[in-house]
Write a protein that binds this DNA or RNA. Sequence first.
DNA 1: ATAGTGATAAAAATCGTTTTTTAATATTAA
DNA 2: TTAATATTAAAAAACGATTTTTATCACTAT
Lengths: 221, 221
Amino acid sequence: MSISESENATASTQAFEALKKDLIRGRFAAGEKLAISTLKTHYQVGLSPLREALNRLAAYGLLEQLNQRGFRVPEIHLEELDDIANLRSKLECMALTQAFQKGDAEWESLLLAAHHRLKRADEQPQQVEEWEFAHLRFHRALLAPCGSTWLLRFVEQLHDQFDRYRRLAPPNPEVRQVLNVQHGELMELALSRDIAAGRSLLDDHIRLSHDVAKKCCQPNT
Amino acid sequence: MSISESENATASTQAFEALKKDLIRGRFAAGEKLAISTLKTHYQVGLSPLREALNRLAAYGLLEQLNQRGFRVPEIHLEELDDIANLRSKLECMALTQAFQKGDAEWESLLLAAHHRLKRADEQPQQVEEWEFAHLRFHRALLAPCGSTWLLRFVEQLHDQFDRYRRLAPPNPEVRQVLNVQHGELMELALSRDIAAGRSLLDDHIRLSHDVAKKCCQPNT
DNA sequence: ATAGTGATAAAAATCGTTTTTTAATATTAA
DNA sequence: TTAATATTAAAAAACGATTTTTATCACTAT
């Protein structure tokens, strides 16, 4: 997703990425109206690049844009979480099938590496953002060779949407433990190209996170 | 998609919609670098709203954004057309299944109306944009009650991408004739809730357009 | 008391200019 | 002649100020 090769990022792009992270992390309340002048001082950017970032985020679906009355954080709805999770399952299983068919030895190495990094990050439970990033990268690596740019794009977008809901729930070590085991198993199934088992496990994996996220979704439905 | 309720649209939104239309219509050459100052005079908007529109279009996938070097129209690639068409088939068939299950009498009426408007538009072959709009609306109406906001969003996005390719091909009355018959059949199958036949026909429908579009895709692969 | 109207304050959107970065061209050294 | 460097021109990005729109609140009339 990130346009920037971490170097020459414009103020727009930096603001976009910082805001995106904070929106997924839950720094803003659901339904909250964003005060542009506040954001301006907080993110230390001018008005123009900030507005460009907000426009991108609205087009991406992490903000709502209301003509002549600014931007607001989307509300949380149980039905939307269900929609996101269900579609995510379908699209990721689709991608997994193709990835298992097309993935080569290079892919296996990268997946192994991503999994290792994820396990390492899991040993530092205080560094939440590092784990989140490693987690995202593992799931990306798993589906990367599926061959469809657009499918990967939508999967990423749904993953971001899903994470916004998931991260409303408080950390749960037991569940985390299960999810981590599943990551290892997904990697193994990738190596053995077991499509049926892979799809089934990925589906369980998403459903488990979904169930946890659901519990924190009741208040503002 | 359109944020504006056609009234209080901001300059950003107007520029976004005008540019989107022109990008899909093929007013710009594939790969072309957009000269912002030219666009400014052409669309009669200031720099800020124009840049906001360009940022939205890039996030939507109708433009490429290169940090510090502006915006360009994406290249045309046969492989991408295949990707778009294949994914579009899968997602639309998914949506069709759910729509046929959930659609009610109100949906049937709206679909009937949309089909009628499409047939009328087809009698005025010189008014291309009117037909295109009616066509888009018919396909929207067909899948509307599928129950998944996100699926509809992705379907719409792929439809726009697909149309950019499709509209590179010169008009073909014979093919158009077949497609129109299929629209009527799709409507009939919707009324009779024949999911299997509906999926199969929708798949054929997309494949036929795909095949036509393919022929105009060779030069710059 | 309530609905409607007008004035005021706040915020969003837009504009024109300045700064920064990239691209093109010319210049110099190997 | 080629490659590297400096210079200039062009374009993108960002800023600060202005305009426009919306929201708030007081006031008036019913």
